[in-house]
Design a protein around this nucleic acid. Structure first.
Length: 573
RNA sequence: GGUCCUGUGGUGCAGUUUGGAGUGCACGCCGGCCUGUCAAGCCGGAGGUCGCGGGUUCAAAUCCCGUCAGGACCGCCA
């Protein structure tokens, strides 16, 4: 062992000890040939070392420094440093590695361009922010595992090279050398395998599972991500919510030092009506208010719609015309036909380009329903109800969303998702979760008569407006499964071809089971107070799915292609 | 597939609105001085394809078009 102590741990209690520390030169301060100070950094912090001024010691050199811990001379202590009362004196310095000047400063003082950070990620990782985040991630992972183990769950690994199933996201595919022309898919999740584990008698399964989806990247989405994947047999929805709540609360307490507030509960229908989304950020108000009754007999054509709803932006009355135009453009991009804005003036007089189309009674009722105060801004959208909710939900976030590290950790269970999210082009319902989701027991009779009204036993966990994960009670009864598949237009033959192995397995005694999976990257990002998950991933990809460090993806050598029986089409002209 | 923002010595920025010599700030880098600093200080110096291409103009970092890269978002993500 080259070191006896970590840099950041030395205190007055160590006075007199001869110690060896190892690390990188954070800064040097030279005072001629006879005196120089080197701040040596490791992941625990920084210690000042008094060294011979003649030595050429530059930033990021890797050193082993041996010297006695001594109290600093009176008046030279540095209260900004945890080790600021002591220093290593009369140091012997071993240069373990020299270093070129880094392309960006390693200190956290200056933010560096993200492309440069990713291209030299190994240097970025040296910085305090990434050290903190990745070490936090490790502790959260560990806490999750401990919690699942303590609850009697068994970790089982599932394969990475699997058969492609056409549902859901786009698969990453891997060509097979032994079966030219055939391909594996990388798992979008271990969904089907964990259900097979249930049939296999592992009644409490979990896995810290890597999942891959070939969809466009976002601040909260990478191609590859980590899920805590859970499934249990002989349990109901409440049991699953309990397991996950215990684990997530344990992880949160590990990260923050305090247990989170009790997790909230809300149905999907309530979330949609009040917040216009299935992942409401409940840290702030500005809830959607139904104005349909106000305009039930309106003469204003724009408000002759199945639903009219609005949000009140407190104090938003000074919003500039430019900004309002930009908001209108946003609303249109979100799918609205338009956006009606009204500034609330003194005595609740409404100032709006369309005010003259809205009767005095309607204006008064509108202001009262929205509880408008002078100085507020009102935003109103009229359209089909789901569209209105969607658009206003996004505008609400645009105008009111607090920074990610504001307002604590507001976990929220959203339950009773619809079984189907709408009708496809073929007129058949589209599963909101996946085709193995159990319908709500009270709604099973509606499956054929009114499928879109059928609630499911599916549920999401939401944290401050981020969807952490989702799960459901699965169908384990053959008759119900056949009815649902039939509704989806998947006949017995097609079902057999697509996931026959699961249906076959269910013929041999399938226990009732339910499960959940949530994104660990997202949880860690929020616990770390980061706006994007790249900050909690050691080697992430850019928004275009590239890695500036390794320059992936790359064209493949023609010989490799030939071995796989693959010919690449020329790029589109 | 789409909307928006960004791109200026190694790094972080200003300059772009209203075209006029690569004009400025801070850090870093190189050399010198310096025995108690701590983002050390002082003196001197080097370092530029203003992302790239085209256009407009007497003249483009600045205006226009295209393109590349990065970011935020819509679509997409059972």
């Amino acid at each position: 062992m080259l070191r006896s102590d970590y840099c950041g741990t030395l205190t007055e209690g160590d006075e007199g000890r001869l110690v060896s520390v190892c690390g990188w030169v954070a800064s040097r301060r030279e005072h001629g040939q006879h005196l120089a100070f080197v701040d040596l950094r490791d992941h625990t912090g920084i210690i000042q070392c008094v060294v011979d001024g003649a030595q050429d010691l530059r930033p990021e050199y890797v050193l082993r420094i041996t010297g006695p811990v001594r109290r600093r001379k009176a008046g030279t202590a540095n209260s900004a440093l945890a080790t600021g009362d002591v220093e290593l004196g009369d140091c012997e310095v071993e240069v373990l590695s020299v270093a070129e000047p880094p392309p960006f400063p390693i200190g956290d003082r200056v933010e560096a361009d993200e492309t440069v950070r990713l291209r030299h990620r190994y240097l970025d990782l040296r910085r305090d922010r990434m050290q903190r985040n990745l070490r936090l991630r490790a502790r959260v992972n560990s806490a999750l595992r401990r919690s699942m183990e303590a609850q009697g769950f068994v970790e089982i690994e599932t394969p990475m090279l699997i058969a492609s199933t056409p549902e859901g996201a786009r698969d990453f595919v891997v060509p097979s050398r032994l079966h030219p022309g055939s391909f594996y898919a990388l798992p979008q999740s271990p969904q089907l395998f964990k259900q097979l584990c249930m049939v296999g008698g592992f009644d409490r399964y979990y896995q810290v599972a890597r999942c891959l989806r070939d969809e466009d990247l976002r601040a909260d989405r990478q191609f590859e991500f980590l899920q805590l994947d859970v499934e249990a047999s002989f349990v109901d929805q409440e049991d699953v919510l309990g397991f996950i709540t215990v684990a997530v609360a344990a992880a949160t307490e590990e990260a923050t030092g305090t247990a989170p507030a009790p997790f909230g509960r809300m149905t999907w229908a309530e979330a949609s009506e009040r917040y216009g989304t299935d992942k409401p950020d409940v840290r702030f108000g500005m809830e959607l208010v139904d104005l349909t009754p106000v305009f039930s007999e309106t003469g204003f054509n724009a408000f002759k719609a199945p639903a009219v709803k609005g949000i009140r932006v407190p104090g938003g009355g000074d919003t500039t015309r430019n900004r309002l135009d930009a908001l209108t453009d946003k609303a249109k991009q979100f799918g609205a036909k338009g956006l009606v804005w009204m500034r609330v003036g003194p005595d609740r007089v409404l100032d709006s380009p369309v005010a003259r189309f809205v009767s005095a009674d309607e204006q008064a009722s509108l202001a009262a329903t929205l509880a408008a105060d002078p100085g507020d801004l009102l935003l109103i959208v009229a359209d089909e109800r789901p569209k209105v909710n969607h658009v206003l939900g996004l505008l609400r976030l645009e105008l009111g969303r607090p920074p990610v590290n504001d307002g604590g950790f507001n976990f929220l269970w959203v339950t009773e998702f619809p079984l189907f999210e709408g009708l496809g082009d073929d007129g058949r319902p589209i599963p909101a979760h996946h085709p193995f989701t159990m319908p709500h027991p009270d709604d099973v009779h509606l499956l054929e008569s009114d499928p879109l009204a059928v609630r499911s036993q599916a549920y999401d966990l939401v944290l401050n407006g981020w969807e952490l994960g989702s799960g459901s009670v699965r169908i384990h009864r053959r008759d119900v499964q056949e009815r649902v598949l039939g509704l989806l237009g998947i006949g017995p033959e097609e079902a057999q071809a697509r996931f026959g192995f699961l249906l076959d397995a269910f013929r041999y005694g399938a226990p009732p089971h339910a499960g959940f999976a949530f994104g660990i990257d997202r949880l860690v990002a929020l616990l770390a107070g980061e706006e994007n998950i790249r900050e909690v991933i050691a080697f992430p990809k850019t928004q275009s799915g590239a890695d500036p460090l390794t320059r992936a993806p790359q064209p493949l050598d023609p010989l490799q292609l030939a071995e796989l029986g693959i010919r690449v089409l020329p790029p589109k002209a």
